[in-house]
Structures are given as C-alpha cells and as structure tokens.
C-alpha cells in the first residue's frame, strides 16, 4: 500500500516575545492509504497543530510533511490550496458551516473552488448529502439543523470532492455521546470505502475503537514509538 501521510522530524515553533512555543517538536510518523487512526494526547500536546500540517493549512518550521507523496515545503499558497482542495477533507469540532448559505451550498464549496460547473456541483452535493442521510435538508440553513445534522453536513462537505484523506479534529466534541457514536459509525463506513481517516480525540473510549492510536505529549510521540 502507498503512503498517504508522512511526517519527518516535523517542528512547528511559535515565537512569543523572547520565548519559543514548541507546538510540535520533532514529530515523525506515517500513515498508509486507507488506514484509520486516532491522535490522542493531553490539551496543548500539539494535536490540532499536527492536523493543520497534514491538512496543508500550515507548514512546518522545520522537518518535512508529505501529503499524498507531495512535500508541502515546496508549495506556494496556490499549491497548498490545491492540495487541500483535492487531497484533504476537513471536519471540525465546531462544524464550521457558513451560516448564510444553505446546506447544499455549503457542501458545494470545495467543488466551487475546484472549478466544477454549477449543475455538476449541485448533483454531487446532493449525492454527498444522500450518503450522510441529509438529502431532505439540502435547502435548509445550518441554524435550522441539530448539532448531529450539522456535523453530518460538514462531513458531506468534506467528502464531496472525494479526497484521499479525511481529517477530523474532535468531531464529536460538541455532540452528545449517542450522536457522537453515529458520527463515528459514519466515519467507519467512509473509511471502509478506502478513505484514509485521521481523527483527533480526547475520549479514550473512542480511541479504543481505532486499530492504531498516535499519542502525543509536548509536541512529540509519547514514549517515542509510532
């Protein structure tokens, strides 16, 4: 199997006045295509920072990050945007749907930025909503949906471009446990169809459901093993 994600000695440092915050401090691991992993660790250990690097929203201060075999260091903003658009789907704890757009319009956004024509966009958005069981809500605004439904809409949006990697940062953090479980089931189905899945979570019960868990502490792998 090919490699979906690879971090080599990735560091992300923030200069805060005269101190340096080492959000990531030499992190190395790799994820095979189609794998399903959880990233765990205490608050401030660098989980979100790590997701940002994998999702091409940010670049390492030093070290290398490869997404789909592509080194993000060599890319400009346009190259990063394209990599985000084609390779990665994001699911956030706070859903991050745009409140003024309908659910269908929200789901269409990645296709819009990929340059897909409106008719085709609409068709694929409805297809993605169908997959998450929200086809009947396509004309609603996010404010009219429950938390679980919003997260499903966000997942549809992350999937609509058929990305190789799905990244979810505490996707169940804002949901009750039953709703959270149904979201995780949905992730399981998506992964079963071949999408690489990386989920950040605090919840050990959720972590147990994953075949592989990466534990972070102070910006490094806990215990040093991958």
């Amino acid at each position: 199997m090919s490699e979906a994600i690879r971090l080599e000695e990735a560091r992300r440092h923030y200069a805060m006045g005269d101190t340096v915050v080492r959000a990531l401090d030499g992190l190395s691991f790799s994820v095979e295509a189609g794998e399903r992993i959880a990233i765990m660790g205490p608050s401030g250990s660098g989980k979100t920072t790590c997701m940002h690097l994998i999702g091409c929203l940010d670049r390492p201060s030093s070290g290398r990050v490869l997404v789909g075999g592509q080194d993000t260091a060599g890319l400009d903003e346009y190259g990063l945007a394209e990599l985000r658009n084609r390779q990665v789907g994001f699911v956030f704890q706070q859903f991050h749907l745009l409140p003024r757009l309908t659910i269908a319009q929200n789901v269409e956004l990645p296709l819009l930025y990929a340059g897909v024509r409106p008719r085709e966009r609409r068709r694929r958005a409805l297809e993605a909503l169908e997959r998450v069981g929200l086809a009947d809500r396509s004309a609603h605004r996010p404010g009219e949906l429950s938390g679980g439904q919003r997260q499903r809409a966000a997942i549809a949006r992350a999937l609509v471009n058929s990305p190789a990697i799905l990244l979810a940062d505490e996707p169940t953090g804002a949901l009750d446990s039953a709703t959270g479980r149904s979201i995780l089931e949905l992730f399981g189905e998506i992964n079963a169809r071949g999408t690489t899945l990386v989920v950040v979570t605090h919840d050990p019960a959720i972590g147990e459901g994953f075949p592989r868990v990466i534990r972070l502490r102070d910006g490094r792998l806990e215990g040093g093993a991958a």
Partner: peptide, 16 residues
C-alpha cells in the same frame, strides 16, 4: 475572518 478561514480550508486560493 472565520468564514475566510473555512473557505481556505476547503481549497479557496487567495485569488478566490
């Protein structure tokens, strides 16, 4: 700002 961040996360380029 947040809307801009979301759009960028979904693949919007600076030009978009």
């Amino acid at each position: 700002k947040r809307e801009i961040g979301i759009r960028k996360a979904l693949g919007a380029t600076p030009r978009h």
